[in-house]
């Protein structure tokens, strides 16, 4: 197998494409770098000059407001020039190939591409074709990875739990189609979480996930007992059309995170969600807004973590 394309020959991060294959030190370095950036948001002038004069291109081949906005804020707080391109509506529909689009944008003196694409692996293809000096950040590719989301989740978990060793973490929902879950699983195991559980019906949580080193559960109650962290996944509307799940109602009945079910977890357990939430489908409002929810701090930390990733890639 070829060398991990996101690391250079010295093991230094060149692109952020996947959590899979990144060493523990790299992940911790990102989390440590993010810490001072959290306080940047509390200043009157919310800017640092780390990326001054650099151009960050947000290349979103798939629609996203939330993730694109947080990357945009992160880049602007680092003083970068940000160019947002919604490619779905431009070149792709005119028949231009993905690599032609990338070549053209590379020629515009970009320094960094933040890429979201509906196809698993697309950022790897892009990273293998950009000119030397351009870094690619995966902002979500198909079902494969969403590394910055997992990193901000790790930041959040460390913030509330101090360390990773000794934790039990349960990921709930559509694991099969989730890039967030895949990134989380790799991040949690790399950082030393001893027990990672995934739970959902077999149509969304296939047994094959055990091969990634997690415990597979199909009953929500069993999966929640004694856990420190509950990470909810968003259920896409297209999963509820009867092909994989009979209905949103039945899903909520079996797998919705209610206050009653959350009581099975440890009393100090925290609840994460990458957003946007489907209240009443995957999570009860009282839990989403309750004292154990850390969903809004996740968003705040998300900007700091993305600043950290961009600054590490910019100064390599």
């Amino acid at each position: 197998m070829t060398r991990n394309p996101q690391l250079d020959q010295h093991g230094v991060l060149r692109h952020l494409l996947s959590i899979d294959g990144l060493p523990r030190e790299t992940l911790l370095n990102i989390l440590d770098t993010a810490r001072p950036f959290v306080s940047v948001a509390e200043r009157e002038v919310k800017k640092v000059p780390v990326l001054r004069g650099k151009s960050v291109f947000n290349l979103f081949f798939e629609n996203s407001t939330r993730t694109r906005t947080t990357f945009e804020i992160a880049a602007k707080r680092l003083s970068a020039d940000v160019i947002n391109l919604n490619i779905d509506a431009s070149s792709a529909s005119k028949g231009e190939s993905l690599l032609d689009t990338i070549s053209n944008l590379s020629a515009m003196d970009a320094d960094m591409f933040v890429v979201r694409h509906a196809q698993s692996g697309a950022p790897f293809l892009i990273a293998s074709h950009v000119r030397e000096g351009i870094s690619v950040i995966n902002a979500g590719d198909g079902r494969h990875q969403h590394p910055t989301q997992a990193l901000l989740d790790m930041y959040t978990i460390r913030h509330y739990k101090q360390s990773f060793t000794g934790l039990t973490v349960t990921i709930v929902g559509d694991v099969l189609h989730s890039r967030v879950a895949r990134s989380q699983i790799h991040a949690l195991s790399t950082l030393g979480v001893p027990e990672i559980r995934v739970v959902g019906p077999k149509t969304l949580v296939p047994d094959s996930f055990a091969q990634l080193g997690v415990r597979v559960f199909n009953r929500m109650e069993d999966a929640l007992v004694g856990v420190d962290v509950v990470s909810m996944l968003r259920l896409q509307n297209e999963r509820m059309d009867g092909g994989l799940l009979p209905s949103a109602q039945e899903y909520y009945k079996s797998y919705g995170l209610t206050a009653e079910r959350l009581a099975l977890a440890r009393p100090d357990a925290i609840v994460l969600h990458p957003g946007p939430m489907n209240r009443g489908v995957e999570i009860e409002s009282s839990v989403a807004d309750g004292s154990q929810s850390v969903i809004l701090p996740q968003v705040t930390f998300g900007i700091a973590v993305r600043m950290a990733v961009m600054s590490i890639l910019a100064v390599r």
Binding site: S120, G121, H144, S208
Partner: peptide, 13 residues
């Protein structure tokens, strides 16, 4: 192939 690699890479099996 429906196995560990497709699961890890998020490829349809």
């Amino acid at each position: 192939h429906g196995g560990e690699v497709a699961t890890r890479l998020g490829l349809s099996a």
